[in-house]
Amino acid sequence: MSEAGTTGAPRVAIVTGAARGIGAATAQRLAQDGFAVAVLDLDEGQAKGTVEAIEAAGGRALAIGADVSDAEQVEAAVARIASELGAPTVLVNNAGVLRDNMLFKMSESDWDIVMNVHLKGAFLMTRAAQKHMIEATWGRIVNLSSTSALGNRGQANYSTAKAGLQGFTKTLAIELGKFGVTANAIAPGFIETEMTKATAERMGIPFDDFIKGAASMIPVSRTGKPEDIAHLVSFFVSEGAGFVSGQVVYAAGGPKA
């Protein structure tokens, strides 16, 4: 399936935090779907691996280095994407960091960096990209939330940010809907990524045991893969999903929310 715009050129998608994990899988899936993909990460060099994988499969991609919490860097990145790939009409706000700690041990910087990357980053990226969507009278925004939005021990900062993204998503859906732009959020449960591997290491649990323990509590009896989330992003940004907006889907192998 080719996601071509009105000019016949491929539509352009931006995926943040796309050097690895869910972001990398999403960027590769959108390239397979026919999008030209801007692979954005903090370090442009780290984004190049995803770009190479996309190009090797016959897709078109561009590596972009930017700190999503820095307004100037975001504006420059989106301007570069528009000039080198084309006007972006799909945005996947996936960039994220963890600074887990119990509340009494959580520092201000632990709080601030998580808020800045998840919430301010999604705000800045969306503000910069939305003008291209409005001009095209077509756009898709997907924000990555988490089951942690429902509350999770040791994650006061992350849970708050991920819950905030759900409110942000619903407001975008209301404000941008009349311009042909939808906004939806995905709240993944346990997904096998470098981030969950780091959590297991911090807890002193072998990753295989960590996965087995998590799978035993999930109704479908397995943990998630980045591709599971990429598949859902693919649906949300498709032409056929134009009547689905302001939704939060918990992709967690069972009922949540």
Rank of each mutant, 00 (worst) to 15 (best):
Ala9Ile: 04
Thr16His: 00
Gly23Asp: 11
Gln28Thr: 05
Leu30Cys: 05
Asp43Val: 14
Glu44Gln: 14
Ala47Arg: 05
Lys48Asn: 13
Thr50Glu: 06
Ala61Asn: 00
Asp67Phe: 01
Asp67Thr: 00
Val74Asn: 08
Ala76Pro: 10
Val78Thr: 04
Ala79Gln: 12
Ser83Val: 04
Gly86Thr: 10
Thr89Cys: 03
Val90Lys: 07
Asn93Leu: 11
Gly96Ala: 07
Met102His: 15
Phe104Gly: 07
Lys105Thr: 10
Lys105Phe: 11
Lys105Asn: 15
Ser109Leu: 07
Asn116Glu: 14
Leu119Ile: 09
Leu124Gly: 09
Met125Ile: 05
Gln130Cys: 13
Glu135Arg: 12
Ala136Phe: 07
Gly139Pro: 07
Val142Leu: 12
Ser148Ala: 15
Ser148Trp: 04
Ala149Leu: 12
Arg153His: 06
Gly154Asp: 04
Gln155Asn: 08
Asn157Cys: 04
Tyr158Lys: 05
Thr160Gln: 06
Ala161His: 10
Gly167Arg: 01
Ala173Tyr: 11
Gly177Arg: 10
Gly177Trp: 09
Lys178Asn: 03
Ala183Met: 01
Asn184Ser: 05
Ala185Thr: 04
Glu192His: 03
Thr193His: 06
Lys197Arg: 15
Thr199Leu: 15
Ile205Leu: 06
Phe207Arg: 06
Asp208Asn: 10
Ala214Glu: 04
Ser216His: 01
Val220Cys: 02
His231Ala: 12
His231Gln: 08
Ser245Glu: 13
Val248Glu: 07
Gly253Met: 02
Gly253Ser: 05
Ala257Tyr: 15
